[in-house]
Every structure is written in C-alpha cells, then in structure tokens.
C-alpha cells in the first residue's frame, strides 16, 4: 500500500458518507445496462402478453381498440374442452418423453462409461440429433413415417407385416410424435448423465467392488444415488422443454388427427392464427407460462435446498475438525 496525502481520510464527515454511499451504488450502476436490456427484451413483451390476456382482441384491431374483458378469457378456458384436451395431451407427451428419455439416456451413459477405442467419436455421433433444427427433425420423421414410401412401413412390408398408420391414426399419432422427440432429446440426458458419471469418485466405486458389490449393485447403490442431483435437474430441464415443444409436432401432424397430438403451444398457435382470438391465445400462454414457472421454481428451490444442506454439513465438519 502506498501512503501519502491521497489516502488520508477526507476531513468532512459528510463527504465521507457520500463517498461510501457512492461506493455502495457502484455495482448497481454496472449491472444497470443488463437490467435495461432484460426489461426491454423480456419484461415488456411479457407485460404486453399479460395485458392482452385481459382483452377481447382480433388481429384487425390495434391493441388500444380491443375491449377489456377482465378474467373472461381465463374463466372461459377452464370450461373449454379443446383446451383441456390440449393440456391433457401436453401432460401425457411431457411425462412420456421425459420418462423414456431419462431411462434410455441414463442407461446408455451407464453402458458407455468406459474406456473404449473410438469412444469420443461415438459420443459425438450420439449427440448429433440434438444439434438438428426441430423443423428438420419433424420433416425427417414425417418422411420416415410416410404411409407408403416411408422407411418404417416399407421395412414392415418387406417382413410381410401390416403397415402401421403412424401419423394418420389417432391411436398412433401421439406415440409417433413421442418417438421422434425421444430420438432427438435422449442425447441430452445421455451427455449430462455421462458427465455426472465420469465425475463420480473412482475410489468409492473401487471400495464398493472390494466390499462385494456386483456391477448392478454398484449402479443401484452407488452410481445412481450419487448422480441423483444431476438427474433431477436434467429431468426438470427436459420437462420445461417438453411443455414448450412446438415445431416438430407442427411439421409432423399439425396437432391431428383430430386433437390427438394438439399440445398447448399448437392450440395457442391455432387460436391466434385460425380463430383470430389474440386475447384467448394470450391467456393460454399465461397458463403454460405458469406451469413452466412452477417447474423452474421447483428447480431453483431444489438447488437452494442442496446448497443449504451442504453448508450445514460443512459447518458440522468444521466443528468436528476443531474438536
């Protein structure tokens, strides 16, 4: 530290207080630009949407001309069978894809967590589907599901089996869509699980082997419990995404046949574009936002809870160390 007059305390105590206050404010000043971008780019559109959800608004009107209807859009949706069906389809879709992807992704990671020649190439190949634009994924699968020229039905035919109406039957369409999503997003679960597996303490696994654990018992008693925090966050991330899925289904089935694959985001799109009810669409978006928000908050709280628990455990260890 240098000494000198520049570092002596200011004589005026009022000045000192002012300077301290300015120092405290500095960080907020630095954060301000980012906050501004956030406000304009995120909060303004959301506010706009919230406002629109209280209006009876058609695309031919300016927002100022629309009639204010209070909670009517929200209440109306609660009794709307089509909306309820879309929520049901979304829940089934999200639950199915996340469960299947978790099982497959974690399973693959457990199988491929070893030193094999060419493993890094294999990993890259595995995560490729994740890199493809959802629109393209939708198109690829639509062609593969094509009733007469698609690869699936041609293969079935060549085996002498009945073709399956992949996208044209209400009984099959949701399953077909789920398969495509599983194809695209299992790699996401796989890669996070693999990272979690590879960061597990090697010696604990060796200790388990010496303690007599079989491969399966190591997975069940050591690997999965230790991976659990990562798995929970991964599942929540996938759930959030699954609730927001749009493009793949839009391209493959556009919600049909009937309402069999019409998820909430497609319902919103139709309400706005086809039925020209911007206010109702906005209210649906708010409902969807709330579902996703609950998941996000759950994830956040889970993180907080873990942090708090770890801090308590560390405090006890420090106590024990001192004793």
């Amino acid at each position: 530290m240098r000494g000198g007059p520049a570092h002596t305390l200011p004589k005026d105590p009022l000045m000192a207080t002012a300077r301290r206050r300015a120092n405290r404010l500095t960080p907020y000043l630095f954060v301000a630009p980012a906050l501004l971008v956030l406000a304009v780019g995120l909060l303004y559109p959301i506010g706009y949407m919230v406002w629109a959800s209280f209006l009876d608004w058609s695309p031919s009107q300016r927002i100022g001309e629309a009639e204010f209807v209070g909670m009517r859009n929200y209440v109306g949706l609660l009794g709307d069978a089509s909306f309820q069906e879309s929520v049901r389809v979304t829940l089934v879709f999200a639950a199915a894809v996340v469960s299947i992807e978790m099982v497959l992704g974690v399973g693959l990671a457990l199988l491929l967590d070893r030193q094999i020649r060419g493993m890094s190439l294999l990993r890259t190949v595995f995560i490729l589907p994740m890199m493809i634009a959802p629109i393209v994924v939708g198109l690829i699968w639509r062609y593969m599901y094509h009733p007469s020229v698609g690869v699936f039905n041609r293969t079935l035919e060549s085996w002498g089996l009945e073709p399956i109406p992949w996208l044209s039957s209400p009984d099959w369409a949701l399953a077909s869509v789920i398969i495509a999503d599983v194809w695209q997003w299992t790699p996401f679960v796989f890669i996070l699980s693999l990272a979690a597996l590879q960061s597990l303490p090697r010696s604990a696994l060796e200790a388990a082997r010496v303690d007599g654990a079989s491969e399966w018992q190591q997975v069940w008693h050591i690997k999965l419990p230790l991976m659990l925090p990562v798995l929970i966050v991964t599942a929540l991330l996938r759930l959030i995404d699954a609730f927001k899925v749009l493009e793949v289904i839009l391209v493959m089935t556009n919600g049909g046949p009937g309402l069999s694959t019409e998820i909430v985001s497609l319902r919103i799109q139709r309400t706005v574009a086809e039925f020209r009810q911007l206010g109702t669409g906005a209210a649906m978006s708010i409902y969807l936002l709330l579902i996703v928000l609950v998941l996000t908050v759950a994830m956040f709280l889970f993180g907080k809870w873990r942090e708090g628990r770890d801090a308590r455990v560390r405090a006890r260890a420090a106590e024990a160390e001192a004793a």
């Binding site: 303490p201 010696s203 604990a204 060796e206 200790a207 388990a208 010496v210 008693h221 050591i222 230790l226």
Partner: peptide, 10 residues
C-alpha cells in the same frame, strides 16, 4: 481395503 482418500460413500 482402506483407501488413501478413504473412499467413503458420500
């Protein structure tokens, strides 16, 4: 076996 880093199950 007793390991250098104890290898306890966390």
């Amino acid at each position: 076996m007793v390991f250098q880093d104890y290898a306890l199950y966390p």
